[in-house]
Design a protein around this nucleic acid. Sequence first.
DNA 1: GAGCACTGC
Length: 702
Amino acid sequence: MGVVLPILEYEEKIAETVEANSVVVIIGETGSGKSTQLSQILHRRGYSDKGIIAVTQPRRVAAVSVSRRVAQELGVTLGEEVGYAIRFEDRTSRTTRVKYLTDGCLLRESLSNPDLNQYSVIILDEAHERSLNTDILLGLMKRLINSRSSDLKVLITSATLDGVKVSKFFSGCPVLNVPGTLYPVEKLYSRERPTNFLESSLKTALDIHVKEPAGDVLIFMTGKDDIDKMVSKLEEKIQNLEEGSCMDALVLPLHGSLPPEMQVRVFAQAPPNCRRFIVATNIAETSLTVDGVVYVIDSGYVKQRQYNPSTGMYSLDVVQISRVQADQRAGRAGRTRPGKCYRLYPSSVYQEDFLDATMPEIQRSSLAATVLYLKSLNIQDIDILNFDFLDPPSRESLEDALRQLYLIDAIDDKGRITNLGRAMSELPLEPSLARTLFEANELGCLSQALTVVATLSAEITIHKSTTRKKEKEVKRKRQSELPDGAGWGDHIQLLQIYESWDQVNYDPRWCSDNDLQVRSMMFSKDVRKQLCQIVEKIAKGPMDVQSGLKQRKRDPDYRKLRRALCIGYGNQLAERMLHHNGYHTIGYRSQLVQVHPSSVLEEDEAGQLPDYVVYHELINTSRPFMRNVCAVEMAWVSPILKKLEKLDIDKLSGGSGIGTKSKVPLSEAGKPKGEMDATKPDMDNKIQTARERYLARKGGKK
DNA sequence: GAGCACTGC
């Protein structure tokens, strides 16, 4: 009560601007209340009478907590006038007028309803974070405001540095600035870049502890290793300080792989006369807000995962942060009172070296799923290679995606989406995993495949203990208790692990006893359940999805399942080289790779690994590795090799239309006429028969 | 014989 949020002073201005324009960019600094107030302003002004007001968030927790707050402020029950929708959880009803949802959820909705005509207003919040999903939505919104006849209003909230760019994208739409309530943060720059930023952070942290008044310290590091080192060094140094020379200290690590009970420690009140040091990754930049922080130490680096489309390989690189990120980090010091930010780099680096904004995710990811999604939308003239993105991905990256989709039969040789591809896009999975499910259904091992696919998308890993001695103990124990994939590889091991968990009625203690994260196991269970529902919806009837052990007796070598994986991962195959256990990937550009040492894939009596394997991902760390590998057979691989020989990227990228005549893309301008005509209805014969067989089989079963 | 930031359907 009594606190007027800055944004409310601008209510009249915002309402006027929205009334006169279909798109408005709102620059709202932290503490402006944009996430909770924009929707309420438009609700008050009657926009919710014509349709629902949607607000997207890049994170699930944000969608839930912000909607809860708005329901409270309006004095309504959550789920009625105000609700939220996130994966696995829809808390909306027919009475809902204001709906918070993740950007991924809105994309799903747009699949079945491309016009999104249940909404009168769509607010894309936190657009400056440039999540892959938000970027796709930005492109879709641009199309929608031009095509939809009704008066859709789109609001985009962004950071100062990015607003003009977004406005330009929407043909110069107005930009409104709303100030925040942050306290001033003094920025202190280093004279030069430290050679060892761990030592430098340590020294800065101790300086603060000795010289500065009370207030917690947030230190940004790049990864778990550095955080662990920093925590123990800091604890040691503080203990060595003269007793009584300064206040007590508590050092807390904070990163994503920390178990939840360790993460929540940062939300607990500090004991009196005690300064907390929180040593964190960029999880503390946006995802988690720690109260009481007055000092921030910013190394200027972040660890980023990037995809290289020319090799099909991921890498994790330590890169410089952007100015948006640097400002976001500094802002963490000014939430409760004026603060200080120690930047371990000179101001010239901030001004000249740092990029304005973080490289958008769309330029750092494999785009197979994105391209399939766009192709599956019922938009007549959509042209993938020239789709209007705020920051377009490289042509190479799009072509890589087309090749991948072709190899797993999601698009035909002219780049048109197949019926199978359309069905695949309905599943919330990477395309290769979706393809695996459909093949498994034909082969009669759907239940097993559902389990494998669910565990893979939950990224189940066997958690390692911290100390080496303990690790060995645990390893011995684990070998006797956890299944090993029967030598066939990691996919099979994941299946067996899940089946074992199923046999103990999904007991969470079983997970922790076996070094499996309870969180990710529970998540895989949710995913599996969701997939079952969708599969039955597509099949329009019940399917054999129960996770039983009958199949194992019928097929002890997992031949059917491995065959389904081989077809699904047709874009992720590798062949062993003669005389040793190295592999080369099969595809457009062959890479030399090795099986990751953590794999349970086994050698035969002659010490040789299987001739052919599929892999879940390629990751370049100390060397290029295949992670999550499964043995397959040459007979299953051969048809894919033939398909690869026929692959013609010019044809693939040409007919981007949905089986109808598409606009001629610029890239095709110089091509002979015949190549451009994508109107012939003789599409995907092979796929259609496969699909027919699939449908027939289903009918026969009932 | 390695060792991975963070999200999301």
